[in-house]
Design a protein around this nucleic acid. Sequence first.
DNA 1: AATAAAGTCTAGTAATGTGGTAGGATTAAA
DNA 2: TTTAATCCTACCACATTACTAGACTTTATT
Lengths: 144, 144
Amino acid sequence: MMISTKGRYALTTLIDIAQNYDGETPVSIKEISDRQGLSVKYLEQIIALMVKGGFLKSIRGAHGGYLFTRPIDQIRVGEILDAAEGTLAPVDCLKGGTVCSKSASCPTFPLYKEIDNAIYEVVNRYTLADLVNETSGESGSKKA
Amino acid sequence: MMISTKGRYALTTLIDIAQNYDGETPVSIKEISDRQGLSVKYLEQIIALMVKGGFLKSIRGAHGGYLFTRPIDQIRVGEILDAAEGTLAPVDCLKGGTVCSKSASCPTFPLYKEIDNAIYEVVNRYTLADLVNETSGESGSKKA
DNA sequence: AATAAAGTCTAGTAATGTGGTAGGATTAAA
DNA sequence: TTTAATCCTACCACATTACTAGACTTTATT
């Protein structure tokens, strides 16, 4: 499985926040937990990754919660998944930096590279806004 | 990691057999193990999956080994990886049969489906013959 | 000032999956 | 009958995943 609960919950969580967002009032973990049926404690960790990824900022203290740092049509799904999962690379030899030393003569390397490209082409074509609209019944925003 | 050693070794192994194949003499696990530096015992398990997948047939006993059941340009990489890994599906909800009950209203389902499609588009475009040619120095056979 | 509602940080842990190893049984050639 | 090979299945160490837990900090409200 390439996309673990971390990545899936991250998307679910950001979509949930977006759907319950007025631009001013922070959305709390408790709310998200109640609506999505996910544990508060695990959500804390997922959301921490989203803050670190630069999509959310936190308001601490009573009536605190999370706000988006930028419009949701400027957050690409690929960025979210990378922040949650580390990478979506289908094989280790594609993980940035430490490329396998034999990749130049590896008969399968071009294949893996193409799979990787294909995955990122999809996830970078979608924005968070596209996913939120999907729920609302629209379906015309799949194509770039 | 979506493609584990099982899938990677499966490809490596079939490529190795193809490169040392005369169409009649069975290629043994011992040979492959020596050339590729993989353990005989682990290779046994990988190759068993390839036999089950219908790409190889075995000749038992002394001087035994494995033969292809059909021309290597008729074996698609996607079939090999499916046989080795079970599935390349990026999320559980896409695994055949048991589709998640909420998929109809799931805002992320279309995204996952598209990722899945993109992956299979790539792996089904390549055949084993393409990968073997890749090694030999050719590079014109990437496109379908 | 006290309280309560929130986020922050770090440690621990059960379950699962990965990547093997091991041993013995079976088959067939020499 | 010996030997070279596949076949079958059990086992195991390690890493990762998917959480749980608890103590601490911050801030609004009273």
